[in-house]
Design a protein around this nucleic acid. Structure first.
Lengths: 120, 120
DNA sequence: TTGCCTATGTATAAGTG
DNA sequence: TCACTTATACATAGGCA
């Protein structure tokens, strides 16, 4: 997405990594903001920079969404709600080095998997 | 980002909202994956669809990052680490209806604010 | 619908001063 | 280095089969 194509792999030059991190993180936060506005979604994002510094984004609020995710009980008789009750769909995929064509196909397949109407 | 420009505001047509949510969420997850690979960042994303269904993305792992964020104690003498110890930088901004020019300026200002070298 | 296409809007890598 | 621009790659809204 710039003047030249950058392969999706670890940037070894610290300055480039820093600039790239800054720009892309803001890009992601912006997109998350748009998603929450346009679709009424609730979103929490936690990012640790390579240096270990944390940045967060939340809509309506980071802790509201994180607590909801962790099923923290809303003070109902001291009863603990277990984490295992969660039923969310996880995406832990890592983008491998693929040529653009295969990359596109893989992304479309992921969309397909997640588009089963009953999930929404 | 499509054939026509869509204002960043709530989509009222349910089908459009669903399709937009699906496409954009996958886009955000893809970008998050790229950020973690290219910059070595740790990322956790939790999204609740308008219907209340949860989707998550994590690198290296959603719970690893979320637990780190919440400073969950690693079993050190039963001592509780308080949430208030956190020192992350929060972005709870909401993108308002701005003309593209002002929007661009606002984004640059955010980048600027977050670009102080000692934070990284 | 559902899966895919493509025209166009956006994000961003490198350039510039 | 920094603030800003620009060329290019990428994401996506609506179209279509």
């Amino acid at each position: 997405m710039g003047k030249i194509k950058i392969p999706i792999k670890k940037l070894e030059i610290p300055n480039k990594r820093q600039v790239c991190f800054s720009k892309r993180m803001m890009g992601i936060f912006k997109k998350a903001s748009e998603l929450s506005i346009m679709c009424g979604a609730e979103i929490a994002i936690i990012v640790y920079s390579p240096a270990g510094k944390a940045f967060t984004f939340g809509s309506p609020d980071i802790d509201f969404v994180v607590d909801k995710y962790q099923n923290i009980p809303v003070h109902i008789n001291d009863e603990k709600v277990q984490k295992s009750w969660r039923s969310e769909q996880k995406y832990n995929f890592i983008l491998r080095e693929l040529d653009p064509e295969k990359k596109h196909i893989e992304m479309l397949k992921r969309q397909e998997r997640s588009k089963q109407a009953d999930l929404w």
